[in-house]
């Protein structure tokens, strides 16, 4: 029972977080491209493609997680992968001493610089995504 509630709670948290994160990126792909570029991790030929597709992958996975029970685990796994990749990118740039905006929930360069707090936040979200990935528990057998 507890596992089911934890899984449900985590699913809604992760779903809503990614839904909110995808919207500003969908509206301003140019700003998204600049935010990705500034990590200086992707080959330049892939920066725009990532800016066009990443927000839609976030949105599609979030909607599937919340509203499509058959695709729930696939969506949770996809979001785990995204979170792991984002966290690695932040950690790598912090290690390289690059001071940039996260581009996580807002694309304004003055908001949300990468730092230890963004790593901590991503780690917590990753835990929640893993909890959402867990099976929702067995339903009670019919009498």
């Amino acid at each position: 029972m507890t596992t089911r509630w934890l899984s449900l709670f985590s699913r809604w948290i992760i779903g809503l977080v990614f839904l909110a994160a995808s919207l500003p990126k969908l509206v301003a792909p140019q700003d998204m491209a600049l935010a990705i570029f500034r990590y200086h991790l992707l080959p330049h030929g892939l920066v725009n493609a990532a800016a066009i597709l990443l927000p839609w992958i976030e949105l599609t996975a979030a909607v599937a997680l919340l509203l499509a029970p058959a695709y729930r685990r696939a969506a949770a796994l996809l979001l785990c992968g995204l979170l792991a990749a984002f966290t690695a990118a932040i950690a790598l740039d912090l290690h390289r001493g690059i001071d940039i905006a996260c581009g996580c929930f807002s694309l304004k360069p003055e908001l949300g610089r990468i730092g230890a707090l963004s790593l901590l936040r991503n780690a917590l979200l990753l835990l929640a995504a893993l909890a959402a990935l867990a099976p929702a528990g067995k339903k009670p057998c019919p009498p």
């Binding site: 570029f37 725009n48 066009i52 927000p55 839609w56 599609t60 695709y71 996809l78």
Partner: peptide
């Protein structure tokens, strides 16, 4: 899921007035 997202992203980007080129 990735294919659906790719289709949506490509379609919306193509329809957008100031669309982003796939290669910058």
């Amino acid at each position: 899921l990735i294919l659906v997202a790719t289709g949506l992203g490509a379609a919306v980007n193509a329809a957008r007035p100031g669309r982003l080129p796939w290669r910058g």
